[in-house]
Every structure is written in C-alpha cells, then in structure tokens.
C-alpha cells in the first residue's frame, strides 16, 4: 500500500492484538456518512485500515436492488466490527448484535449505548448492563465508553476485550478533550485502549496515539472531509506518527531553554 508504512527495518513489527486477532494497522475506520459506496471503498483502502465498523439496519424493501456495503467493502478483506449505533437501551443493543452475529457469523462487536442528543454521551449504566449480557451470550465486546477510568476498569473486569473512550462527542471533530483521563484509562487497564469519537483531523489522531492508545477509531473526520481519500491517508500517517513518537519517548517539558549547539569552542 503506497505510503502506508506498517513496519520496516527501523520501526519493526508493531502489530497489536485484540481478542486474539492481530492487526498491523492501528487505525480503525467507520463506514458511515460517506456520500456513496465508491468513496467509502476508496477512502478505506487509502486509510490502510484492517478493521471497519458497520451498522445493522433493516433491508430496504422498496429498493431491493440498492447496492450493499458488502459489495464494496468485502468482509473477506476487512474485519467487520458491527456496532449498536442507534440503540438507547441494553436490550436493543443485545438484540442488534445477535442479528449481526447471524448476518456475519462472528463474535467480535462494538457496543455503544448512548444518552440523548445533543452529546450522545455514553450511557454507562446501560453500557455496563449490555456488556454483561453480551459477554454471557459469547460475544467479544469492544466497548465505547465515557473517559472514565473507574468505569473502564469495571468493563475490563467483566471481560470486555477493548476499552474505547470518547475523545470528544461523536462527529464533533474536537479532538481529545481530556488527555489526562485517556492516559489514566491506559494506565488502569491491560486490554487495548482505542480513542473512539471526536477526531477531527490527522493531528488529533496523532495526539491520541502519543498518549499511548493502542489504536484510534475514526469515521466523520474522513467521511466528511472535502477529500475523504486524502484525509484517510493523512489520518493514517497521523496514527503512525503518533505511535512512533510514543514508542520513541518524548523529551520532558521544561520551562526554560537548553541550547542545541555546544556552548564551548566558541570563537573569540
């Protein structure tokens, strides 16, 4: 994939594992909000993502020949991560993912139970209930959640396979609003942590990765950019830059200057 560096002599293999599945790309992308399925396919290809989120909806009976996502974004090539978008109760989320499992035949899912507009902030009480029911039913749950280290630890303890705190409200493009809590979650749990929601541009993704996230989930920032394919590539580079910077270890912040050139051997 042109320009997508997944590992080379300098960076080495830097893959990550969720629920026993190994991925090279640390960018997970959503498939919603694109103007058409051709653009969806092109942008996802440019993003280098290996895992994509999808929603479950009624088949359109009035237009049965409408093109289907699967014809453009092949489940054979990409790991589909069915979500529970649009679910506001634990029961709805469980019902939706049972259907997704039947449609796709796999157990890895993204749970999200949202509160009301305008924030669509995660409803953690309902999320915890739904996670418990799904895990009991054999699902491997990657969970969208509040940037709350206590709730994140509870979700890990009950068996969720990845913790996905919001950086900012879904589709807001505000970037990571509370880096301290994202870092606290990364320190609190052992399973992968992904910033999900709020990324507005490549820099936001880089910042999330510099905090030490295992991966970032991006949809609106790519789908609604003027040029989604270019932005997909940009966000991919942002994720890689942030990850490399995290691994490299940044210098401490100081409130004074330290000269970069020797202060000895000066001409007199």
């Amino acid at each position: 994939m042109d320009g997508i560096v997944q590992g080379d002599a300098v960076t080495g293999d830097d893959s990550w594992v969720v629920a026993g599945r190994k991925f090279s790309s640390r960018l997970v992308v959503g498939t919603g909000k694109y103007k058409d399925l051709e653009t969806t396919a092109a942008a996802i290809e440019a993003s280098g993502a290996e895992m994509v989120t999808v929603a479950v909806r009624r088949v359109n009976l009035s237009d049965r020949n409408a093109p289907m996502l699967q014809d453009y974004v092949s489940p054979a090539r990409y790991t589909y991560l069915p979500n529970t978008a649009g679910c506001f109760t634990a029961d709805e989320a469980v019902r939706t993912l049972r259907l997704a499992r039947e449609a796709g035949g796999w157990n890895l899912v993204k749970l999200e139970v949202l509160g009301p507009p305008p924030l669509l902030y995660p409803d953690m009480e309902a999320t915890l209930l739904a996670a418990k029911a799904l895990i009991k039913d054999g699902f491997e749950v990657m969970v969208y959640c509040a940037d709350d280290p206590v709730a994140a630890k509870k979700l890990e303890d009950m068996g969720c396979v990845a913790i996905m705190p919001l950086g900012a409200p879904i589709g807001s493009g505000l970037g990571v609003q509370n880096p301290l809590m994202i870092q606290s979650i990364i320190e609190a749990v052992k399973v992968p942590v992904l910033v999900d929601a709020g990324v507005g541009t490549a820099w936001d993704a880089a910042f999330a990765m510099e905090l030490g996230c295992d991966a970032v989930l991006v949809n609106s920032a790519i789908a609604l950019a003027d040029d989604p394919v270019l932005m997909a590539r940009a966000v991919s580079h942002g994720v890689q830059a942030g990850r490399l910077a995290f691994r490299a270890g940044r210098i401490p912040r100081k409130g004074y200057a330290s000269a970069s050139s020797p202060m000895t051997g000066l001409i007199r």
Binding site: G32, K33, N83
Partner: peptide
C-alpha cells in the same frame, strides 16, 4: 440460516430482515 427452508411462515408473523450498512 440453516433453518430457512424448514421455517414455515404463519399468519401475523413479524419478520425483520437486516443487513450491514455504513456506520461508525
């Protein structure tokens, strides 16, 4: 899916048919 052939529809059945669509 394996039971589609064996499932006979009955009056007043409520059927939901879903598929994957774009989502975040």
């Amino acid at each position: 899916r394996s039971l589609y052939e064996a499932t006979h529809l009955a009056a007043r059945d409520a059927i939901e048919i879903v598929h994957f669509v774009g989502g975040g």
